[in-house]
Structure formats: C-alpha cells, structure tokens
Write a protein that binds this DNA or RNA. Structure first.
Lengths: 229, 229
DNA sequence: ACCATAAAAATTGTCGACAATATATAGATT
DNA sequence: AATCTATATATTGTCGACAATTTTTATGGT
C-alpha cells in the first residue's frame, strides 16, 4: 500500500498504461538511466503504435524522467550527484513550505491519520528488528502525507507529480540516499507535533532541517568515498 | 526585449511554433481561461494536423496551462483567486531558495549585469515618469535573473518553465497582481545587495518578504472588493 | 411536460504510411 | 592512413483515416 505516488491516476487509456509501466521501469533501472530511447524498438516491445508510445513519452517528459531534443530523440535522465543535490535543495524549499501550509490547512482527522501511521511504522520498525521498512516505504508515506496536507494543488503537483518520481529513482539506483533510519523517525514525530500544534513556522523549520540533514549525510558519504581514492 | 521566458527554446519543429503561439494566446487571454479546447477546430485554425496539434497541447500541459482528461478533452486552466494565492505560496518558497542559491553561485559578472539592469530600470522608470515599464517587464527580468542565478536546473525548470507562464497569465488577466511599483524597486535593490554580499540567508529572507508582500497586497485588495459588495 | 432510452453526431485515442531530418556507411582525394 | 564528401540507412516529425468513447439529439413512455 505504499511506494505508490498519490497523484498517479488509475490508467484508462493504453498510453496511460504504457506510461506507468515505463515509469516503473525507469525508476527501478530496468530502462537504464542515461540510455537513449528508440521509439520503434519500444513500440514493438509494448506492442503499440509509435503514436501512442510518443504519448507515453510525453508524460514521462512531464515527470522529468526523460529529456527530448527535437529531431534527435529522447534520453532517460542521468543520475548524477549534482542532480541529486539539486533535488534536495528544491525539496528543502518546497517541503518546508508544504509543511508550513499543512500546519494551517490539515484537518484534525488528517493529523490523526498521520499520527496513527507513525505509531504503525514504529511497531513495524520494531517487528522487523531492523529499519528496512521504515527506510523504504514508510519514509515516503510520511512525506506524501505532509505534502497532501498542504492542500495546495501546485505544491502537490510539483512534488508528487514530478519531483518524487526522481526521488524514488535516485533511491533505487544510488541506494545511499535512503533516510537515516533511527534519526528520521524522531524527526518525523517532532514534525507531526508541530503540525498538530498548528505551529507553521516551527513545522517548516523542522522539515527543512530534516531534509537538509539527509543532504548533508549524502555529501559526507561522497566526501568519504573521494578520500578513499 | 523582456517578457520573454529565458527557458523558451527557439522553435524548430512546427509543433514548437504552434505551442509558442498558443502559449502567447493563452497568457494574453485570446484563448479564454477555462474554455474547452477543440482539437479539430484548432488544428484547422493553425492549419496543421490533429497529431501535431496534440503535440503542442502536450507541451502546454507541461506548463500547466491546460488540463487534460482522458477521453474528454483539454481545458485552459481557470484564473481563480485561490489559484493565484497558491502560486504565490510556491513562489515565496522557491524563489526564496533560488535567491539563497544565487548568493552562493552567481558569478561576479552576473551580479554586475544585474546591478546594471537595475540602474537601467531606474532611469526608464524616471523617463516614463510613471511606473508602467517597471511594473511590467522590469519586474519579470529581475526575477528571471535571480532564478537563473541559482544555477540549479530543477529550480530554473520549475519556475521559468512552468510557474512563470502562469504568473504572466494572471498578470495579464487579473491585472491587480502587478508589482507594487515604488516599493518593489527598493526591495529589488536590497536583494541584489544581499546577493552581492554573498549573504544567502538574508537574500532568501528578503525575497520571501518581497513576494509575501505582493501576496498580502492582493489579499487586501480582495478583502476591499468584498467589503464593497 | 418530464424523464429514461436509443440513435446520431462529434470528439478523443490509436494506427500505419509518408516526409524531413539526423546518423552511419562507403568512396574519393590528399 | 586520415579526412572530407556523397550515398544509404535509420530515426523522428507530420499527416490522414479508422476505432473507441463521449456528448448531443431524437424518440417513446408515463
């Protein structure tokens, strides 16, 4: 029930279905990052015409998962360290604001649901005596809920509809940018507290620190790796 | 030489050209906000096939200027007060961060160019003995420059490639959300100062206040209008 | 007169073919 | 042998036609 982007519509047209299949394939790396996309080849592979494949490609482009140059073709985006850090900067900014708005606009029911989710995650974390679950789906669930809690359609579209596909792609392919399990959980609780207190200013600050901490964590890992060489 | 989105590629394919024409038409209201888009009709109007028109529509959708429902069709987005306020929230967040990044990454040359631009705007403002120029193109130029100064491709894409088309659309159609001329100019100078001082924290704060002030200005006008009725 | 149903018209989605452009191959020249 | 040019191949862009779906209109019943 997790790892599913909340803005993803249920596919109705064939282009929709192929889009979602390709989305999955790109995020998981089955279609390699940076690789060129051959329209005739993929059309044959999915057993659809080139037109509908192009329709699917257009949606992937909308998510910033592929890039297109006129008369030349499409490429899957590359996963670079710089790209990852750029995404963190945007997330820090936007999710911080989303959190501030959530403190204003989330209903009491939504807040309670989020609290329930967190306790549920806590038990799961204990159950698995590890942090695997929380590192993966749980973290995303939390962030999605906050974003939706902003009740701001622009924020929701940009974050869930675009940026978070890339977030998941980087998480699958780099691996190193999963949440720092133990600390992340505490940070999440504090953020929910601030939202429940309707303290938007604090909520924004905490979310920004939460994301900035992840970014710095990665920057450190990078630095370590570079020292080894 | 302003009012031109810096991320807009020079059109190469016919779909590109039609896209830019329609972009212009929607922003200026020649294609009415909220109106339904008839593919056959527009294809005939632009003298292209429906396929290439659909290609253009896909790009408009990427800019969030039209919305599409499967098997039903496309509509131009509506200009609502709520929608405008949502955009301001996102701008406050993202442009604030862009400004912080600009203080880090802008080159000295870029900063000088921006200073030059501002003095040029000042003289124009005096020349026209009004604030028309600055209210329109000048303000956009300034904000574009800051955004580009972030050197963050994600920020640039989201702001220039998507959000600012909507900003311009609202400005054309509502009119009331143009910059508060006299104050805006001073605020712009202070922001540039902060960037030149490489004070990212201050730069972000000033930009956020600058945009928040515009938003509050609109909220007040709305409130006034509602009191009249 | 109103509502439900069925037929007709219009609109969107998908397909295959052709045109325009870019890439790869072969040949000629120095 | 290397470089430039010309040809051939492959890929992307555009077109018109058909299929599937939705909207409108017409019809009949209460």
């Amino acid at each position: 029930m997790a790892l599913v982007n909340p803005t993803l519509q249920t596919p109705v047209t064939t282009a929709d279905k192929v889009f979602q299949q390709m989305l999955h394939a790109i995020v998981e790396g089955h279609i390699a990052a940076g690789s060129k996309i051959s329209e005739p080849e993929l059309a044959k592979q999915y057993q659809i015409s080139r037109s509908t494949l192009r329709e699917a490609l257009n949606r992937l482009e909308k998510c910033h998962l592929i890039e297109r140059k006129p008369n030349i073709g499409s490429k899957v985006v590359e996963c670079t360290i710089e790209g990852l850090l750029e995404i963190y900067v945007v997330r820090e900014s936007l999710e911080g604001m989303a959190c501030r708005q959530a403190a204003i606009y989330m209903t009491d029911q939504e807040i309670n649901e989020m609290k329930d989710m967190l306790t549920q995650h806590a038990s799961m974390q204990a159950l698995k005596e590890g942090t695997a679950y929380y590192q993966e789906e749980g973290d995303l669930d939390f962030h999605y809920k906050v974003i939706l809690g902003s009740h701001n359609q622009q924020l929701i579209n940009i974050l869930c509809g675009q940026l978070y596909h890339l977030v998941r792609m980087y998480r699958c392919q780099f691996g190193m940018n999963s949440p720092r399990a133990s600390k992340a959980f505490d940070e999440h609780s504090r953020i929910i507290e601030a939202i429940a207190d309707r303290d938007g200013e604090l909520a924004e600050m905490l979310m920004r620190r939460h994301i900035a901490a992840s970014r710095k964590n990665i920057e450190n890992k990078i630095a370590e790796k570079q020292q080894q060489n």
